[in-house]
């Protein structure tokens, strides 16, 4: 029980009150004629001002649904959300839709995965930037336009004045993502959620966008929730990492602690699947075997058991409980390592 707290670095621990505090978040989808599906199954984590927190996991583990639930952007019908997401003293999950509209884009902003489809094809880049400022800062379009040009410049878009008049299809993938970041930062949000912001981009562009994000959150003191399936992205960016599996956080730790001494077998699997520069040539990447389709229900097992090389008897009979706190911890009967 106490092993988990032995992680050597405790990022941001006690440094300040959390800006966002997610507790026992659950999202259940109910489709006609289908069984209930718990896409998010009791997720808790904290984000402190200025901190960058990663949510990491394979496709389908509930990363996007978690962020959309916090933003109040889940599709209207067919889902049930419970738990809480306290932002600045208010529970975002119980705010009225109009109060939520006031927060979105101003206090909390979001960047999405596919920059092309996330931009409106028939509206100029300039308009898509200024409309946020018109909405939240009471500016006229005229007043907002020079500010939009400044923003584009800040996110590294050359010739910003000309770009304002462009349409999304006239920009490259990297430029589009920069434009989306400009829109998200237009009103100086205190929290930015980035849902796989680089997945749709070329590797070189990915690095540029990550560097830009890092620079911006450091400059502005914006807290960042970084969603990714790639632990490599997390390594360079995040102060704290939450590893999600089957809708639950299975391990959490500071980036250094987690990389040096992963405890959950799934985290180990993810780490082994990161391409390493220092790996001997011919060393194969070892992705986690199996797929999420093999998952057991969390209700009376560890969902990861069918894919786990460490599995022991209780793994298929009981739910592993969280061992740790809001800063470090894991959920496993037979953890790895623990020798620190």
């Amino acid at each position: 029980m106490t092993q988990a707290t032995q992680h050597s670095s405790r990022p941001g621990a006690g440094s300040s009150e959390p800006l966002l505090s997610v507790r026992d978040l659950r999202v259940t989808f109910q489709r006609q004629g289908e069984e209930e599906f718990h896409a998010v199954d009791g997720v808790s984590f904290d984000v402190r001002p200025g901190q960058t927190v990663g949510l990491v996991g394979e496709s389908g583990c509930g990363k996007s649904v978690t962020s959309l639930a916090i933003m109040g952007l889940l599709p209207g019908r067919g889902n049930r959300v419970s738990g809480s997401a306290i932002f600045d003293g208010e529970d975002l999950l119980t705010l009225s839709p109009s109060a939520m509209r006031d927060r979105r884009g101003s206090e909390i902003a979001m960047i999405f995965q596919d920059p092309l489809s996330s931009l409106n094809p028939v509206i100029s880049i300039g308009r898509q930037v200024t409309e946020v400022m018109e909405r939240h800062q009471g500016l006229s379009r005229k007043q907002a336009t020079p500010k939009a040009a400044d923003l584009l410049e800040r996110v590294g878009i050359p010739d910003p004045k000309a770009r304002l008049l462009n349409y999304p299809h006239q920009l490259s993938g990297g430029m589009r993502q920069r434009a989306l970041i400009a829109m998200a930062l237009a009103c100086n949000p205190r929290l930015l959620i980035a849902d796989e912001p680089t997945t749709a981009l070329d590797v070189t562009i990915q690095a540029q966008i990550l560097a830009l994000l890092k620079e911006l959150v450091v400059d502005t003191g914006t807290a960042l929730v970084m969603i990714t399936h790639d632990l490599g992205v997390v390594a360079g960016l995040c102060d704290e990492v939450n590893v999600l599996y089957g809708g639950k956080v299975v391990e959490r730790g500071g980036r250094h602690g987690l990389f040096r001494d992963p405890r959950h077998p799934y985290t180990v699997g993810l780490l082994n699947s990161i391409p390493r520069l220092d790996a001997a040539r011919g060393d194969k990447l070892s992705p986690v075997p199996g797929s999420v389709a093999d998952n057991l229900p969390w209700t009376a097992a560890c969902a990861f058991a069918p894919r786990c090389s460490n599995a022991i008897d209780p793994c298929t009979a009981e739910t592993p409980q969280w061992e740790g706190d809001q800063v470090v911890g894991f959920r496993c009967f037979n953890p790895m390592g623990g020798t620190r």
Binding site: L73, R101, R104, L119, P121, E131, R135
Partner: peptide, 20 residues
Amino acid sequence: DYVRTAEAKGLTARVVRGRH
């Protein structure tokens, strides 16, 4: 996706509907 982006910007329902 761009309708979701518009919602994520907190635009009013009227603007989301008409413009986007």
